[in-house]
Design a protein around this nucleic acid. Structure first.
Length: 424
RNA sequence: GGAAAGUUGUCGGAGUGGUCGAACGAGGCAGAUUCGAAAUCUGUUGAGCAAGCAAUUGUUCCGGGGGUUCAAAUCCCUCACUUUCCGCCA
């Protein structure tokens, strides 16, 4: 949620900023409603003051033995006027709130406007492997080595589902363990979270109301139902909803492992075979809660951590700074780590690091007390995948494949696989 | 799944229609005392919204929503959650 005062004071600034995301904002109705609402509030509060004063007279008059029927009758009339105004205010307020909830976050000043095509590669690490043999795709490797059973996964749950088997399952589990150990070493608190969340979580994270159809609902979609989380971020940024944190407790650093459940309705493309885009994939997610002044630093830290993991795995990747329009609705800025998948000939996102600044905190009312000013302020929330396995796993198999069809296991993962060096 | 009891400020915990934004205690903050600290004493201490340059004023909030009433923390309805007991179960 954006700061309502900012829109009141400088609607054109906000409008231009959102335009960089390709979002066309029109504040004329909003500003009119907001002004109307404030006028009505002033009016109704006067009446309420009158009612309160009158009501206080009733017991006083009774004590004095005076007749109270007249004052009760006139106050009742005031009460009726109040209900009418209150109802108008509530209607306006609902429309205003819904409008505010529908607005995306404003991109940082330094972002380029536009979509994907304006993303900028700001770093390349490692090199594309140069195979002296005919390299296989990860799908072939998985099938040949029995790591992943796509057919039976589809049998169990349809397209976009698969079964990790044997060493494939162990490799997947090794990756997750490796990630978690990295985060523990950096002082992050490790969390295992509920996978079924209530509506407020989606609203607080900024996924709802707009993207409520992109998730799986347990019962029928309603405000009392629960949905399967599309990312651990949805849970992590809601932990302190409606709470006030101490400044001395910040930053808070979390790493949570969950599968991510996504409908991905209509987004499957034939080149995304295998596990590139599934309805369930594993991810370790990092989230930080910081003060506003520390959030830029935290962002750099998160990007650095995600990069380091890929580097330790020895995988070739590039780091992209996303254009405003490619950042998700909740975010001010996003850097993607994109990993080279030889068979596809493209780089695919394995981590997305973002700064939401106070956008999510405003939505879910997470504040901290500023020790200097003693005032309550919204925290900043940041998140970064650390990492998602579903693109890493294919990239790893393909980049580490050998001519004889075997796959070398990266050094850092071996201790999680009983010292195994090669899958064959 | 069945039954009961709860949900009050930073925390514990009173309050069953008006004098309650809320007793009392703890904690926090400021001051006194002290070389300093502890202990003790004194004072102070919630948030949102509206108006105002501000001081301030008004208003709302006692789990969420709705209702009754001149007036609701208090009465009624409803939803959510928590705890305990029983049943079932990994």
């Amino acid at each position: 949620m954006l700061d309502i005062n900012l829109i009141r004071q400088n609607p054109d600034y906000v409008k231009n900023s959102l335009a960089k995301k390709g979002y066309e904002a029109d504040f004329t109705v909003f500003l009119k409603q907001d002004g109307e609402k404030r006028e009505l509030i002033a009016e109704v509060e006067k009446l309420k003051a009158q009612r309160n004063a009158n009501s206080a007279l009733v017991p006083k008059y009774k004590k004095e033995g005076k007749d109270v029927s007249e004052i009760i009758a006139s106050t009742k009339k005031i009460g009726e006027e109040i209900s009418v105004l209150d109802e108008k205010i509530a209607t306006l307020d609902k429309e205003i709130t819904n409008f505010l909830l529908s607005l995306p976050n404003m991109p940082d000043e330094d972002l380029l406007a536009g979509e994907k095509e304006n993303n900028k590669v700001i770093k390349v690490w490692g090199e594309k492997p140069n195979f002296s043999f005919k390299a296989k795709s990860h799908i072939e490797i998985c099938e040949d080595l029995g790591l992943v059973d796509y057919e039976r996964g589809a049998k169990l749950a349809g397209n976009g589902s698969w079964i990790y088997r044997g060493l494939g399952a162990r490799l997947e589990w090794a990756l997750i363990n490796f990630f978690i150990d990295e985060h523990l070493a950096d002082g992050y608190e490790f969390l295992l979270l509920p996978h079924m969340l209530n509506y407020e979580c989606g609203l607080g994270a900024g996924q709802f109301p707009k993207f409520a159809d992109d998730v799986y609902w347990i019962d029928n979609k309603s405000e009392n139902s629960k949905f399967l989380l599309p990312t651990a971020e949805t849970a992590l940024v809601n932990i302190y909803r409606n709470e006030v944190l101490k400044e001395s407790d910040l930053p808070k650093k979390f790493a949570g492992y969950t599968p991510c459940y996504r409908r991905e309705a209509g987004s499957y493309r034939s080149e995304e075979r295998g596990m590139i885009r599934g309805h369930q994939f594993n991810k370790v997610e990092m989230v930080q809660y910081t003060t506003p002044k520390d959030s830029d630093k935290a962002f750099e830290e998160l990007v650095g951590k995600a990069e380091r993991i890929v580097q330790k795995l020895g995988l070739h990747y590039q780091l992209s700074k996303l254009a405003a329009g490619d950042c998700s609705a909740s975010m001010c800025r996003t850097y993607d780590i994109e990993i080279w998948i030889p068979s596809m000939g493209i780089y695919k996102e394995v981590s997305s690091a973002s700064n939401a600044r106070d956008y999510q905190a405003r939505r879910n009312n997470t504040r901290y007390r500023n020790e200097e000013t003693k005032k309550l302020e919204y925290v900043h929330t940041l998140n970064a995948s650390g990492l998602a396995t579903s693109r890493l796993f294919p990239a790893l198999l393909e980049q580490y494949q050998n001519e004889d069809g075997s796959v070398t296991i990266p050094e850092v993962l071996r201790k999680y696989m009983g010292g195994l060096e090669v899958i064959r």
